[in-house]
Design a protein around this nucleic acid. Structure first.
Lengths: 348, 348
DNA sequence: GTTAGCACTCCAATATGAATAGTGCTAAAA
DNA sequence: TTTTAGCACTATTCATATTGGAGTGCTAAC
């Protein structure tokens, strides 16, 4: 455990370093600290902090910068969310603006607002979909060889796909199929729906046609789509402002990470079930491209509709206290909006 | 007009400069040219070429690089498409692979193939949509307060939007509306459809309801969407390989240009109705961000289904001869695929 | 019209030196 | 025992030479 004075010094090093981007020396620190000790004392303290592994020198006679461990300690024990100015809170509210017809629109807009507000990259994820239920399934013939299948879920999300069908597929069979899905699967949570779609439905269908699996396999991807998490990313280009301009390779891998929902899933994974705002340093995540970046995740809670995640991706030297404060504000605002949304559209 | 020797020199300067990225000197040139003259002679010729404005020096005693005008001349008179190796042609065919259910899938895939093949940024546009006809219009109720409107066009493209409706909108009225659109507008080209939707349909509708315009206005954006050009961009990140890494600003404007279909429209605009492959130097386009880039456009012809465009965006120092050869191959391959697609799905 | 030769120019890379900002350590003061 | 002043030391950064090399333009001869 560190002494109070060491805490203060570490906190101040982080603050100044995030502001200036320059290593921090003992004299600068002397003038910045709220209490007075000589620069020599500070040098001694910094030497111990370096020994513990919380500070680093860029070269033998330079000032100190926080190490990864130093950041970790800072984030775990020292950072205090700064209070969000009133006009920012107001701006969030204004930016949300209008009312929304689609759940995803709100989540997508959230990413936009966050990235604009912070000039970092924002990633958002809607409320956990394992709690959403199937509420409807339709198939619409488009022309002689194409049909559209549509899924509606309890959070008012709609997904659709278009399929090409050969002539032998009788329209009465399709109607039968739609009826079975609506009768048997509506009201079930999506994972359960997918399970039953493959187990129960073919059995029932086999009464009417000999090869039932074709139809089920065809629409399977649509159900998968409805059940899979949908991430929204905004402000990707902001990464360019912080990227090491000599290492285009790194920028490219970074971009490909945030465009792959599989990778995103790992990044945002709320594995530790603790609720709240967490910061994860990229270097802790093993990925080489993320070495100099970090990610702040916050969950938001929409009651029985589940929890979602909002996140900010930026360089390790982000303004954590500000951003944590902002995310704190934003998550409650977003939850409020979503509760409002659900109450407006929930079938009563 | 230039002498044959001057042509050869300019062509060689372009070739070496694109290969090495370095200014080309008289000695290098002497060894590279297919005929032998001394470096002094070449110096004299280069001096004239510089006077005319086709070559430039980066500083007083450097080798020469092609100027914009030099490139223009090279592209207009000197460049010869290189022959596409057989394995590349084969690779294109393989990459297209499977058969497609949607026209847009083919166009999108084209962008992917092109960008991978060239490691530049590819932009593709489907066949001109003013020739596509409306073939169907559906409205599907999703739940108590949402409906989905669907448009099908003669090129088998499908567009849909979801709308929130208030309770007072009677379902029989909606059916009426759908019937009118299908009776009166199907078979018309899309621009005409949009016109009639606003002129004729409200008049007919007003027999059944007093405020007909609400319904028309609601679905208007869907028809607009179906009629608007849809660009596909792939390999955006390749731009990072050629960008001036000191000027992140430029990279950002570049990205925002290729993500705005309005800007893209200007870039690809086949204003000069001449058919074929054209190269436009970014500096000729006025846009500051494009100063160091150029764009190669090629149209492709699908008979009475209209013409589309494929394009490559890259630095001014692209390998024009190779790329022009490649695009030549690609446009015929794509046209073949599309004709095949149409013949497979055209209602007979 | 072409070429050899030479003086000239600029760049890129390398060294040199001074100024600066920082450190660690020691010995004295609190 | 903790804090401080003072000093020797180190690395970076910036500006300023110094050099070699690649290239040019020009002139005079072929």
């Amino acid at each position: 455990m560190l002494s109070e004075r060491q805490d203060a010094i570490l906190r101040e090093v982080v603050r100044i370093f995030t502001d200036t981007g320059q290593p921090v020396g003992s004299k600068t620190l002397m003038n910045a600290l709220p209490f007075h000790v000589s620069s020599a004392t500070i040098r001694n303290e910094m030497a111990t902090l370096e020994e513990i592994g919380y500070l680093e020198k860029t070269h033998l006679s330079s000032g100190r910068v926080p190490s990864i461990n130093g950041y970790r300690y800072y984030l775990d024990y020292l950072v205090q969310p700064s209070i969000v100015p009133r006009d920012v809170a107001k701006k969030i509210d204004e930016d949300f603006g209008q009312t929304y017809h689609q759940l995803d629109d709100i989540i997508e807009r959230s990413a936009k607002i966050l990235s604009h507000l912070t000039s970092y990259t924002a990633i958002t994820l809607g409320p956990e979909s394992s709690k959403t239920l199937l509420t409807g399934f339709r198939i619409v013939p488009l022309n002689s060889h194409q049909i559209m299948a549509i899924i509606v879920t309890s959070d008012n999300n709609v997904e659709n796909n278009i399929y090409t069908v050969d002539d032998e597929l009788d329209s009465s069979l399709i109607e039968k199929f739609v009826k079975i899905v609506n009768d048997k699967l509506v009201g079930q949570p999506l994972p359960k729906v997918i399970e039953m779609l493959h187990d129960d439905v073919p059995i029932i269908l086999s009464n009417y046609m000999h090869s039932a699996s074709g139809l089920v396999d065809m629409v399977d991807d649509l159900f998968q789509k409805a059940d899979s998490d949908k991430y929204f990313v905004d402000g990707q280009l902001n990464l360019l402002n912080y990227a090491d301009s000599n290492d285009m390779q790194e920028v490219q891998s970074l971009f490909s990470i945030i465009n792959q929902s599989n990778d995103l899933k790992k990044l945002l994974d709320p594995s530790s079930s603790e609720s709240g705002i967490r910061v994860r340093l990229g270097s802790e995540l093993g990925s080489d491209a993320l070495k100099n970046y970090s990610i702040i995740t916050a969950d938001y809670d929409v009651g029985h509709h589940g929890k979602g995640i909002i996140a900010l991706l930026g360089p390790t030297t982000m303004h954590y206290s500000q951003l944590i404060g902002l995310l704190g504000e934003f998550r409650t605002e977003l939850a409020k909006r979503l509760i409002d949304y659900y109450s407006r559209y929930d079938d009563s």
